[in-house]
Simulated assay, not measured.
Amino acid sequence: MRNIKLTIEYEGTNYHGWQVQKNAVTVQECIEKALSRLLGEKTGVVGCSRTDVGVHAYGQVAHFFTASAIPGEKFSYALNNLLPADIVIQKSEEEPENFHARYSSKGKRYRYLICNTAHQSALMRNRACHVRPELDFEQMRKAAEHFEGEHDFAAFQATGGQVRSTVREIYSMAVKRREDSLIELEVTGSGFLYNMVRIIAGTLIYVGMGKLAESDVPGIIRGLDRTKAGKTAPAQGLYLMEIYY
């Protein structure tokens, strides 16, 4: 059997997340249906990251096994003819049999977008979190630096996360102001807890609003208490940018 890796871009607005569910349309389901049509048999797909409802991706990765003779790089073209316009296979390639989209990954990069304007953007309403009060960008930038390094991020995990350890390492985190009135949070790490990036984003928004001080962040991390961090920021601002192998 051949092992085919897919790099997938999608707008998550119309989907109930990545993972197949009984009573809702998901990205994984659409890809599996397209593969079944293409190959003439039921084909399961294993994804790296279980993105939530409304979360977007530039670089989700999945793999599947097949006996098909279709060249690895051609699957993207064939599948894109069968997929809806808001799901695109940007790259397909054959990998060794032991490659696993989830377990072979070494790290991930996420982006979170904040639209800090008086009025919601009609074009970005499903693609960025809208915050009306003017945010203190410099305080947010300084607060973001405290997250870098290896920490126990128990205070930044939503209820429902099931992991053996809440210790994770953030390699880099940066906050920048873009020319299109968006504030961009970019974070790269070894792995992330359930809703971790969205809770970090919500905490930075609280700092920007003055509800938390930049100097509060180290104590929140050490305290391991979810109630001390900011609210979970909305899903539509989150993008899975890249997975490292």
Results as ranks from 00 to 15, higher is better:
residue 35 L to C: 13
residue 35 L to S: 14
residue 35 L to Q: 13
residue 35 L to G: 14
residue 35 L to V: 13
residue 39 L to W: 10
residue 39 L to H: 12
residue 41 E to F: 08
residue 41 E to C: 12
residue 41 E to K: 15
residue 41 E to T: 15
residue 41 E to Q: 15
residue 43 T to F: 06
residue 43 T to P: 03
residue 43 T to W: 04
residue 44 G to L: 11
residue 44 G to V: 05
residue 45 V to I: 15
residue 46 V to E: 12
residue 46 V to P: 00
residue 47 G to S: 14
residue 47 G to N: 08
residue 48 C to A: 15
residue 48 C to D: 02
residue 49 S to P: 00
residue 50 R to I: 01
residue 50 R to Y: 01
residue 50 R to T: 01
residue 51 T to A: 05
residue 52 D to I: 07
residue 55 V to Y: 02
residue 55 V to T: 07
residue 57 A to Q: 10
residue 58 Y to L: 15
residue 59 G to E: 03
residue 59 G to I: 05
residue 60 Q to G: 14
residue 60 Q to F: 12
residue 60 Q to H: 12
residue 61 V to S: 08
residue 61 V to M: 08
residue 65 F to L: 05
residue 65 F to Y: 14
residue 66 T to C: 00
residue 66 T to R: 01
residue 67 A to N: 11
residue 67 A to T: 07
residue 67 A to M: 01
residue 68 S to F: 06
residue 69 A to L: 04
residue 69 A to I: 03
residue 69 A to R: 12
residue 70 I to L: 15
residue 71 P to K: 12
residue 73 E to V: 09
residue 73 E to G: 02
residue 73 E to F: 11
residue 73 E to S: 14
residue 74 K to P: 00
residue 74 K to M: 09
residue 78 A to T: 02
residue 78 A to F: 12
residue 78 A to I: 00
residue 80 N to G: 13
residue 80 N to H: 11
residue 81 N to K: 14
residue 82 L to M: 10
residue 82 L to P: 03
residue 82 L to R: 07
residue 85 A to C: 05
residue 85 A to Y: 11
residue 86 D to V: 07
residue 87 I to H: 09
residue 87 I to A: 11
residue 88 V to F: 06
residue 91 K to E: 15
residue 91 K to H: 14
residue 93 E to H: 04
residue 93 E to F: 03
residue 94 E to R: 12
residue 94 E to Y: 11
residue 95 E to M: 15
residue 96 P to I: 08
residue 96 P to Q: 04
